[in-house]
Amino acid sequence: MTSADIVSLPKKWSSDDWQSNWVPGVQVGNVVYVSGITATDIDGNPVGIGDFKAQVERCLEKLQDVLRRAGGTLADVAKLTTYLAPDADADAVRAYFDIRASYFGQHGPASTGVTVHSLHRKEYLLEIDAIAYLKED
């Protein structure tokens, strides 16, 4: 079995008890598996409540942060999965792809989008997880 390294966040996001059990990402060799990311502030409170675009941007900023801590960038993302709240309409999906393109370019990673019954909190409009492959030095 390959050993895995935890991508840690030095109490930057939340001081809540749940964070001690939550792992932002795990690196196995050159692959980083990023846990689901929602739009929260550094204290774990939802941000951009009711504002889909603000939540997309916050999720992608947090994804960048996790990857940076692992030694990577968004350019290293090979697979992106986006879980959308049930009320995400066609306009929200178009906005998502426009914002995503501003972070990844027009030809971003392979991706899957799923509309789910609900997310962890009703304030969350989406959740993103990713798999990245870090280039060797």
Rank of each mutant, 00 (worst) to 15 (best):
residue 57 E to G: 08
residue 23 V to N: 06
residue 55 Q to D: 11
residue 42 I to Q: 05
residue 78 A to F: 09
residue 40 T to F: 00
residue 91 D to T: 14
residue 133 Y to S: 11
residue 37 I to K: 04
residue 46 P to K: 01
residue 99 I to T: 09
residue 26 V to F: 15
residue 18 W to I: 03
residue 137 D to K: 13
residue 72 G to V: 09
residue 24 P to H: 08
residue 43 D to A: 12
residue 134 L to W: 02
residue 128 I to L: 05
residue 92 A to I: 04
residue 60 L to Q: 03
residue 40 T to Y: 00
residue 111 S to Q: 15
residue 127 E to H: 05
residue 57 E to K: 15
residue 74 L to Q: 10
residue 18 W to L: 01
residue 61 E to H: 10
residue 31 V to D: 12
residue 103 Y to Q: 07
residue 121 R to Y: 06
residue 53 K to P: 07
residue 14 S to I: 00
residue 21 N to Q: 15
residue 136 E to A: 15
residue 92 A to E: 15
residue 73 T to K: 10
residue 73 T to D: 11
residue 13 W to G: 11
residue 50 G to T: 06
residue 125 L to H: 05
residue 47 V to G: 05
residue 68 R to C: 03
residue 35 S to E: 14
residue 34 V to T: 01
residue 23 V to C: 12
residue 116 V to Q: 03
residue 35 S to I: 03
residue 135 K to A: 13
residue 82 T to V: 15
residue 112 T to D: 13
residue 82 T to S: 09
residue 29 G to Q: 12
residue 105 G to Q: 01
residue 29 G to M: 06
residue 115 T to G: 03
residue 48 G to Y: 05
residue 51 D to T: 01
residue 115 T to P: 06
residue 9 L to Q: 09
residue 107 H to K: 08
residue 76 D to W: 10
residue 45 N to W: 08
residue 51 D to W: 07
residue 92 A to G: 06
residue 81 T to N: 14
residue 44 G to L: 00
residue 15 S to N: 09
residue 132 A to P: 10
residue 105 G to M: 08
residue 3 S to G: 12
residue 128 I to K: 04
residue 61 E to P: 07
residue 24 P to K: 02
residue 125 L to Q: 09
residue 124 Y to N: 13
residue 97 F to E: 15
residue 84 L to E: 12
residue 47 V to H: 00
residue 6 I to S: 03
residue 35 S to D: 14
residue 69 R to K: 11
residue 131 I to Q: 11
residue 130 A to V: 11
residue 20 S to K: 08
residue 49 I to D: 03
residue 54 A to G: 02
residue 130 A to E: 04
residue 16 D to T: 01
residue 97 F to M: 12
residue 17 D to C: 10
residue 100 R to P: 06
residue 112 T to A: 12
residue 51 D to G: 07
residue 120 H to D: 13
residue 6 I to C: 00
residue 120 H to G: 08
residue 7 V to H: 05
residue 41 D to V: 00
residue 19 Q to Y: 10
residue 52 F to L: 14
residue 135 K to I: 04
residue 105 G to I: 02
residue 101 A to H: 11
residue 58 R to Q: 15
residue 79 K to V: 14
residue 51 D to P: 00
residue 118 S to H: 13
residue 118 S to I: 01
residue 32 V to A: 02
residue 50 G to L: 06
residue 126 L to H: 12
residue 60 L to D: 06
residue 21 N to P: 01
residue 50 G to Y: 07
residue 37 I to C: 10
residue 83 Y to L: 10
residue 52 F to W: 09
residue 43 D to N: 12
residue 27 Q to H: 03
residue 70 A to C: 09
residue 59 C to Y: 07
residue 38 T to Y: 03
